[in-house]
Nucleic acid binder design. Structure first.
Lengths: 231, 231
DNA sequence: TGCGCTATTTGCACTCAGTGCAGGGACATT
DNA sequence: AATGTCCCTGCACTGAGTGCAAATAGCGCA
């Protein structure tokens, strides 16, 4: 029973994902059986399981690929500033969502209402987080508490990305998510980021000047001292 | 077929968890059927599903309870310093693991080797993180970027706890995990914590004193200024 | 001791996800 | 036309999870 003989070559996978999303949205995830998906896609039940390992895998068809891309992206930056590298990885992930807003939004509606899918998505998030954590751990391997910092910062990065993404999804895909990400990253760098600093506390700077110091000169000194502090 | 009539009242649940863990460890999770667990526990298959919603739920029998306790713990601290409140919540969670090292270690071995259980555990972690996030969001509701900070800090807190716990578990339950947690929290406060500060940058303090100021008095001034800065 | 009341337990029948195996058909290459 | 290679299919099977109705055990109470 195939409506369209068409190119029955290779597009099974796409047909399955489309049919599945349609049925999930119309009837709900739990109420949709794999048999129903297969029939709607004009494909045998067994073929479904050739393309997807499980019923819920059909909702996240390209996450595996994206995880690999992110991993490669990080591996390509062995010397960059670690936080910058993470930031650019987050841009990569967000961009891949923004590239297909429809899919992202439909998937969001689905995961939002189906606990089972929600869990699956969280598992994916964990995969990204693990990439970040391992990357940072390697970069900070000689810093005191570097392994702890790697975990904490990686988790923060994931949360930051998901916060921006969720905000965008809640807004129905309107708004500039990438700009929001930039703002969030800027905030993060300023106040939330934890490069492992061991036991060095926040510094209090005491500067002593002549009482009648030239204000411009004073400013120059402060500027210089600050740039020295930054490194 | 019951070996021991004993008190067949109410201890079914305990018997099931014990039998399940035994079988999981001996044969592996996937190779153990619910029927086998039920039989080993001297209980019908249907009874298993009366006590546990799914096969994997038997591995995390008391997480639901702990989540509730943590939630109540946070709700009881509506005015404390938010980071302190989170810290004490983490202590609560860790303590509950440390209270039964055997169970914790066996579960760790299991989740470490069974992806399915791993996913389930991650879902639980997410539950705690959500509690933290909601708590912080409420506490920082009027701060700029407070919602973002809540998510990022909550994720960091979770990661911090899991880092300490995992370290302890990897060490076979030896070592003082609670002391490690304190150390990690101390580090966190110093270098990783992000109370939402909006656009306020790191402060550089310029203090001016008479050239011949009494060092003790200078120190007193610095102390005073610092404590003013802290709030 | 016997009588209900309630909560736990059980049996049965059923749906559906997921797997292993063996084969069938389309397509390209030679 | 023969051949090899994918992709797809049918079939039979295991095992998780559910709904329903009945059985049973403990317990308070007369």
């Amino acid at each position: 029973m195939q409506a369209e003989p068409s190119t029955r070559r290779g597009d099974s996978r796409r047909r399955i994902t489309h049919a599945a999303m349609d049925l999930f949205e119309r009837q709900g995830y739990a109420a949709t059986t794999v048999d129903a998906i297969a029939e709607a896609a004009g494909v045998s039940r067994r073929t479904f399981f050739h393309h997807f390992a499980s019923k819920d895998a059909v909702v996240f068809p390209d996450h595996e690929h994206l995880v690999e891309r992110v991993g490669a992206h990080l591996r390509a930056q062995p010397t960059a500033d670690p936080i910058d590298a993470i930031g650019s990885a987050l841009r990569l992930v967000l961009a891949s969502y923004l590239a297909d807003p429809d899919v992202a939004l439909r998937r969001y509606q689905l995961t939002r209402t189906t606990p089972e899918l929600r869990e699956r998505e969280i598992a994916w998030v964990q995969r990204y987080q693990l990439l970040f954590s391992r990357y940072l751990d390697e970069r900070w391997s000689d810093a005191p508490q570097g392994d702890l910092a790697a975990d904490v910062v990686a988790a923060g990065a994931s949360a930051l990305h998901n916060h921006v993404l969720r905000h965008w999804l809640k807004g129905g895909g309107r708004g500039d998510a990438m700009a929001d990400l930039e703002a969030a990253l800027a905030w993060w760098r300023r106040s939330a980021v934890a490069e492992p600093r061991g036991d060095v506390p926040r510094r209090v700077v005491v500067a002593v000047f002549d009482e009648d110091v030239d204000p411009a000169q004073l400013a120059a000194h402060v500027r210089e001292a600050r740039s020295a502090l930054e490194r």
